[in-house]
Design a protein around this nucleic acid. Structure first.
Length: 272
DNA sequence: TATAGTGTTATCGG
DNA sequence: ACCGATAACACTAT
């Protein structure tokens, strides 16, 4: 399920397949996913428009548009969030499907649109769909992305120290706080802390500056590795993240617990 | 049948 | 006011 690397993949799918095509119809019928908009509100804003640019910060995406007709008037911004189980699929007029790769435990068979929660139909017959079994994804106009912290794939050392340097939260809880830095989910957080040899429950005010700088480098490295590898599932600790899993470095059995309200795995021998 | 879950957010309490 | 913890959200997979 999507963290920053999977969302970046979805953004690339949108950028490669949904821009510059006239929107002919919009399915915004899912009241939960499209909240707080009234039925038809998103449709009314987008029909006749074209999408122009696909952006991402952390796990949030937004797509800019230009309005109908010859006017260069900029149209509304379409915000997209994949939640726990969302996926973007582009369907070409001939029926070919493109998505960001498989991160569902059971892959979605081509042609299975049972869990479509939102959709654009283009004038050429193609479609852009949000497929989301759990419906925790989100589609809305003009999303409030300014509340997000710096993107975890690009955060600087100074920004990172500012994000982690205050308060008393367990360091894993802070890594998951999207207003501090944006894009880290539960699996990436476990990988980053394992790589930096820091126990997830350590309080942020107990971290030294060398700790923080090491954690910053590890964060950038793990995010880059997950993007390059094709998703957070390719990270080393994630493959061992099950009862009885072992530390890939020293072979110790991983501990399992709850930190920041999330299931957490760590190496009791190396992470202090 | 019961439970956990890779995300976000309103609400509660210190 | 700030900060952190918790429950709720909707639904599937095991």
């Amino acid at each position: 399920m999507p963290e920053l690397p999977e969302v970046e993949s979805a953004r690339a799918v949108i950028a490669g397949g949904a821009l510059g095509r006239r929107i002919a119809a919009v399915d915004d019928s899912d009241r939960y996913v499209c909240r707080p908009h009234a039925p038809g509100e998103i449709a009314q804003a987008l029909v006749g428009a074209k999408l122009t640019e696909a952006h991402r910060r952390g796990k949030s995406m937004w797509v800019e548009s230009v309005g109908a007709g010859r006017s260069r008037r900029s149209g509304p911004t379409l915000g997209l969030h994949l939640g726990m189980s969302g996926k973007i699929v582009i369907v070409d007029p001939d029926g070919d499907e493109t998505d960001g790769g498989d991160y569902w435990q059971r892959g979605r068979p081509p042609g299975d649109f049972r869990f479509q929660r939102f959709g654009l139909t283009f004038a050429d017959g193609g479609k852009m769909l949000l497929i989301d079994p759990r419906r925790l994804g989100r589609v809305r106009l003009d999303p409030p992305v300014e509340r997000l912290g710096p993107d975890a794939a690009a955060i600087t050392a100074g920004e990172f120290r500012a994000a982690l340097g205050r308060g008393t939260a367990p360091v894993k809880a802070r890594l998951l706080d999207q207003t501090a830095l944006a894009g880290i989910g539960n699996l990436l957080a476990d990988q980053i802390l394992w790589q930096a040899r820091i126990r997830p429950s350590r309080r942020v005010n107990e971290l030294s500056r060398p700790d923080l700088d090491r954690l910053h480098r590890t964060t950038r490295a793990a995010v880059a590795a997950a993007i390059k590898g094709g998703g957070v599932h390719t990270l080393r600790i994630v493959e061992q993240r099950r009862p009885g899993g072992h530390c890939p470095r020293d072979g110790a059995e991983l501990r399992r617990g709850t930190v920041g309200g999330r299931t957490t795995f760590w190496c009791p021998a190396e992470q202090n």
